[in-house]
């Protein structure tokens, strides 16, 4: 899988976010075995300890679970990943609007920009 990482921000939360996205959109299914820590580290070009930390963080949140000697699996509680991802979207949206507010744009003006924005 492709990883999009921003070097100006901590890597660990970015890995968590992207894993949550893949679980929320159904790329990774419940009880599916994930790539090993080393494989993820290689494919993303990041430190294996960072990947390990991300997996542990998601395990703590109940999004992944580990099986000793086997690896990391997606938990059945995929709604937790969806919720985590939605929280992230809400945060980003809020950050966007407060930035626009700082620039002196009203809600209406922002709406206009959003509508004119072609994806």
């Amino acid at each position: 899988m492709e990883w999009v990482l921003n070097k100006n921000k901590p890597i660990c939360p970015q890995l968590c976010e992207q894993l949550c996205l893949r679980i929320a959109d159904g790329t990774f299914k419940p009880n599916e075995r994930l790539l090993s820590v080393r494989e993820v580290a290689l494919s993303a070009g990041v430190n294996p300890n960072t990947v390990q930390r991300s997996f542990e963080e998601l395990e703590h949140q109940g999004i992944l679970y580990s099986v000793r000697g086997s690896g990391w699996y997606v938990s059945e509680n995929t709604h937790l990943a969806t919720a985590a991802f939605e929280r992230l979207l809400a945060e980003k949206t809020e950050a966007f609007f407060s930035e626009m507010q700082v620039l002196g744009l009203s809600g209406e003006a922002v709406k206009k920009y959003v509508e004119e924005w072609n994806l």
Partner: peptide
Amino acid sequence: TVDEIREEHGKSVDE
């Protein structure tokens, strides 16, 4: 640690 640097300074180690 590099993640601390990114968190604290909001920039990459290179920067």
